[in-house]
Design a protein around this nucleic acid. Sequence first.
DNA 1: ATTTATTTTTAGACAAGACTAAAATGTTTT
DNA 2: AAAACATTTTAGTCTTGTCTAAAAATAAAT
Lengths: 222, 222
Amino acid sequence: MNALLTTSAEENYLKAIFKIAEKEPGVVLTNALAAEMGTSAASATDMLKRLSDKQLVAYEKYRGVTLSETGNRLATALIRKHRLWEVFLVDKLGFAWDEVHDFAEQLEHIQGETLTERLDNFLGHPRFDPHGDPIPDAQGKWMRRTQTRLLTLSPGQRGIVTGVDDHSPTFLQYLAELGLSLGAELEVLERTAYDQSAKVRIGERETVLSEKVGQNLFVRII
Amino acid sequence: MNALLTTSAEENYLKAIFKIAEKEPGVVLTNALAAEMGTSAASATDMLKRLSDKQLVAYEKYRGVTLSETGNRLATALIRKHRLWEVFLVDKLGFAWDEVHDFAEQLEHIQGETLTERLDNFLGHPRFDPHGDPIPDAQGKWMRRTQTRLLTLSPGQRGIVTGVDDHSPTFLQYLAELGLSLGAELEVLERTAYDQSAKVRIGERETVLSEKVGQNLFVRII
DNA sequence: ATTTATTTTTAGACAAGACTAAAATGTTTT
DNA sequence: AAAACATTTTAGTCTTGTCTAAAAATAAAT
Ligand SMILES: [Mn+2]
Ligand SMILES: [Mn+2]
Ligand SMILES: [Mn+2]
Ligand SMILES: [Mn+2]
């Protein structure tokens, strides 16, 4: 169909816009974009003009930006590639879930439709990445799913770990040490009203998890 | 140890210098480098200055260039990565040997020592890529091997296909159609003095191969 | 040993992507 | 409604990597 040449930088910005709009639906502001990208607001403005020229975003000065249909398609494809590569790194190469993001950040920019689809096939068409995030299919369709923050569980309720909201290596490593990988089961035993910390049972072990952990850990209630 | 930041462009030039010097040992001239890279001589000169500043090459104006110890190490590591990824693409993703070069050209630039070594491990430490080219080990050591061009075989001699000198998709596809993949056995039945073409037997089939094919196909005599 | 031809380098331009500092616009407060 | 504050854009600069055209150096030919 059309070639649609995009640079890695453009792709990263598109993905950043997508991610911000995912959390906070609506228009994305320049400062938020610059913060997400770790660049200056001036650089973000420069890029927004470029993306607007290429019709990848709808951008109005001082008002903010949204992805165009094409921009959304590209961002989705990029996320698909990122997450498929993460699955590869964990499932096939044996990396831990806290080690793969930076590699995937590079691998997501490898060009070639057929590569992505063959990789997807090789991996058995996974629908979630190692952090529990959904992988859109080749048509860009997303899998919808009900997740609850651990924080909302009351004593007596049990859940299966389905994802994280904080992807930082330190958090991921901490969870791994606690035995809280994807699919792990846990039960809330007590909740302290004062600081929202919770005593939980993970297998045989009992631990106290802070509000911060409760906020950043997603479970499916069982 | 040391970080040694290099861009993809620098890496590609280093690899090009390595490849030219591999065929034609000695100093590499600017025009040859530009031709290999598909750029102008002016661009090659610019890059040579940059590589020289970074101590990756020994460069003397108008005289030519050679890789430094560090430059050689980087070029070798790049070739290692390129060929490991090619093995991955063929062995794991099921691509044909004529389809993988462009992908590997991108994948070779993915940064991260551990990734390369885990990939190598996942692939079972292959010593040759899908085209029969040797893969240097993690220390940069090359496997030496005796190969003969099919052209030098006399009638009655048999050989096993071990590699190609021409890596173009058209040649690789042609070989595949003939059943001449790596490891295939063939026997030279006749050779025409006039044009050096050869009648060969491949399994049950008999075919005539031109001098050009004889020149570009490597075998191990058995 | 000049002239001629080839190779290589320099000079000047350009695009992408980043920066800082200053100007402009938008939003809140008083 | 002004003033103060926050956000965003513009202006000017830098680096990388490319180009073309012109100048300089080297090599070949007469
Ligand atoms: Mn990730
Ligand atoms: Mn990226
Ligand atoms: Mn390359
Ligand atoms: Mn190869």
